[in-house]
Design a protein around this nucleic acid. Structure first.
Lengths: 240, 240
DNA sequence: AAGTGGTCTAGACCACTAT
DNA sequence: TAGTGGTCTAGACCACTTG
């Protein structure tokens, strides 16, 4: 299994091996994994190297150690995957619902002062404006308006936008989407929003404002989302 | 500096020493710290032990390593501290407001099924129930109800609770507060909540449910907070 | 070429858990 | 008592950065 001549560190190869065993269900959550000394002997590597692999997986929350007892496969936590920056589709799928989208409008407009500031472009710059309804199990969940600079994605079409927008951006820009800042507030639905979301006017809604950034720290999208409060809660893990 | 006979691990003593140097400004953000081999020689400890100390501080974001160059004191990031699990007082102070608190009630009650589940205790177990108004610049911002097991803090008094509750918990339990899960939803104020928060009934509010955990993964508090939507927005940094 | 962090070894003793 | 993870040592070679 371990290739000592590989340019990949041994501890890394062992990490991958253990993760594979878990993915293939040969190791299940709660299972006791082989001891450090056992790995050391069977793989003919030093115990300190085994420890480095196991410590890394522990800090990733994949394994859990118990003094005197052994090392166990941690319980898979749904919430853990929801921790970070996920798309609507990913999030709803993780909650066991079928995500879909309905495009309301797709057009090029001139950036208002507000959006221009957030996208770090000049006011009046041409940007895409995309309005969508997000559905889960065919029920309206959120009303989303996105803005993106045309210069970043000159060949974006409505067709592409209705499919995997994030994947398209990452391909076009050869950069991955790594960070976003988001504000969350409570509000009540306007008449337009209520109609679209099929709720009563003035119903409670969660209002999100997100700015997404590429690896080079340049903003690529500004999104405003309105979620139905009766069907949606936001979960977050906090640490310090 | 290092006491090899101490029951405290050497790497831990070294961590404390380095942190102290930073606190005392003998090491400033951006400064190059002594190399691993230098620490190893001056403290007469193994380089692997030095590495353990430095790696821990690196994963805490206190130090930053650069291959071939050395290890540096990281820039202090305000956002970093706000990213995670902060107390109301810390958060408001960071926003430039003066935090304060008004105790509404402090009593021992029996855990309902709902709270017992979250605190992982038996239904009917005795718990503290603490109701407070949280103010910023003397304006009501949030209405907070906390529950904590009595067994965890047998000597908790109203006096203590009105001061630094988190600090008290950390002292009593000899464990730090590391994690919390939180849900965020939109709601509208009940009559009671509206009165307390000095807003109109049915006004939009942000509703938080938080469960806080100690290092040993045991829950120590369950909190329900109602924030005025007109004065409070929640900010979060997302990464993937 | 010298210095740095990254990886790795082959031992050792300790504290803790289980039987 | 045997087995586990926690800590520690005194070396070694590597890849990388800088003078």
């Amino acid at each position: 299994m371990i290739n000592k001549k590989s340019h990949l560190p041994i501890y890394y190869q062992l990490e991958e091996e253990i993760k594979k065993l878990i993915e293939e269900k040969q190791l299940q959550p709660g299972d006791l994994i082989p001891s450090e000394r056992e790995f050391s002997e069977t793989h003919e590597i030093s115990r300190m190297t085994v420890r480095q692999a196991i410590n890394n997986l522990t800090s990733e929350g994949i394994l859990e150690k118990q003094r005197g007892k052994g090392t166990f496969v941690a319980q898979a936590k749904l919430e853990q995957s929801l921790q970070g920056l996920t798309s609507f589709s990913e999030e709803m799928a993780a909650r066991g619902m079928e995500p879909s989208s309905r495009m309301l409008s797709f057009q090029r407009v001139k950036a208002t002062n507000h959006v221009a500031n957030r996208l770090e472009v000049e006011e009046g710059t041409e940007i895409y404006e995309i309005k969508r309804i997000r559905l889960a199990d065919s029920i309206p969940m959120a009303y989303e308006t996105s803005y993106m600079p045309v210069t970043l994605l000159p060949r974006l079409t409505e067709e592409v936008a209705s499919h995997s927008l994030y994947g398209y951006v990452e391909n076009e820009q050869k950069q991955s989407i790594k960070k976003a800042t988001q504000s969350i507030e409570a509000s009540s639905a306007t008449k337009e929003e209520a109609t679209i979301l099929e709720i009563e006017e003035k119903s409670s809604v969660l209002l999100f404002h997100r700015t997404g950034y590429l690896e080079n720290q340049k903003p690529f999208e500004v999104v405003k989302s309105i979620y139905r409060a009766d069907r949606y809660k936001f979960f977050i893990q906090l640490e310090r």
